[in-house]
Amino acid sequence: MRVLVATIVAALAGGSATLAGAQHQHSHDPSTPVAPDTRQFVKFPAPLVEHTLANMRDHLQTLQEIQSQLAMGQTDVAAKVAETRLGMSSLGLHGAAEVSKYMPQGMQDAGTAMHRAASRFAITAQEAGVTGDLKPVFAGLAEITAQCVGCHAGYRLK
């Protein structure tokens, strides 16, 4: 029985990897013309480019940690992670005042909206710990992510 389960798991894992690879590769067909990158180029001083990219990687890691905590039913932990690493109280941690000087207004607005959405999410996640209603939690998480997607779609660093 264990061999059968192991075989099924291996087949599913391989199938998932193949599907993911096929989905990823379809947009990189060399015969397909590539659309030009129309995002606004934002020039930061070199040390701030690395700092900002590291912050964005941390934001992405934080979103993953929030999702993991929600999957385990730990809405209170997800709330704390969101507020301390993405919310308005995290601005000092990321050096937002220094970095924002180099951002166009739209990029600043997207960043502020993301941090505010994270703080609202933290409150919503805490409330869900009492109510058990996760719909607003996932809507709040989508709002945070939408700000990230919007900013990355409009701006780029080099």
Rank of each mutant, 00 (worst) to 15 (best):
A110M: 05
Q105A: 12
Q69F: 01
S31I: 15
Q108K: 10
K101T: 12
V149C: 04
A46S: 09
K158M: 11
P47I: 13
A146Q: 06
G132L: 02
S100R: 12
E127S: 06
A110E: 07
Q126S: 11
Y102T: 09
R39Y: 10
A118M: 04
L53C: 07
A139W: 03
P136Q: 01
V137A: 01
V34P: 04
G111V: 07
D29H: 07
L19S: 10
V99I: 15
K80M: 08
S89N: 10
A153Y: 09
A97P: 08
T75M: 04
Q126R: 14
Q61S: 14
G150Y: 02
R2I: 14
S90F: 02
L141T: 03
M72A: 13
S16A: 15
A54L: 14
Q147G: 05
V5Y: 10
D133C: 03
G154F: 04
G154T: 13
H28K: 08
V49D: 01
E83L: 05
T112F: 02
T75P: 02
L63N: 07
A71C: 02
M72F: 02
V3F: 14
V130I: 13
R116G: 00
R120A: 14
M56I: 15
R39V: 14
R116D: 00
A11C: 11
M72K: 14
A79G: 11
H26F: 12
P104C: 09
T131F: 04
K135E: 13
A6T: 10
G15M: 00
D37G: 09
V99Y: 06
E98P: 05
V42P: 00
M88E: 12
G111P: 00
L19N: 07
K43C: 08
K101N: 10
A113Y: 03
T131Q: 04
G92I: 01
C151A: 09
A10N: 06
L157I: 15
Y102K: 05
R120Q: 14
A54H: 11
G111K: 02
E83F: 00
D109I: 12
H51Q: 10
M1R: 10
A82K: 01
K43I: 15
K158F: 12
G87R: 01
A11K: 05
H115T: 13
V137R: 02
K43A: 14
G92A: 03
Q108P: 01
A13T: 12
G95H: 04
V77N: 08
A54M: 10
Y102W: 12
H115E: 02
A82G: 08
L12A: 14
A117C: 02
M107L: 12
T75V: 07
M103D: 11
S16D: 03
Q108E: 11
A17W: 13
L53H: 12
L141H: 03
R2Y: 15
I144H: 00
A128G: 04
G87P: 06
A35S: 14
L93K: 11
S100T: 14
Q25H: 14
C151F: 11
S31E: 11
A139H: 00
V149H: 09
K101S: 08
G129D: 09
S68H: 10
S31W: 09
M1N: 08
T18W: 11
T124C: 07
T62R: 08
P33G: 01
R156G: 04
K80D: 12
V42A: 04
A96W: 12
T62S: 08
I123Y: 04
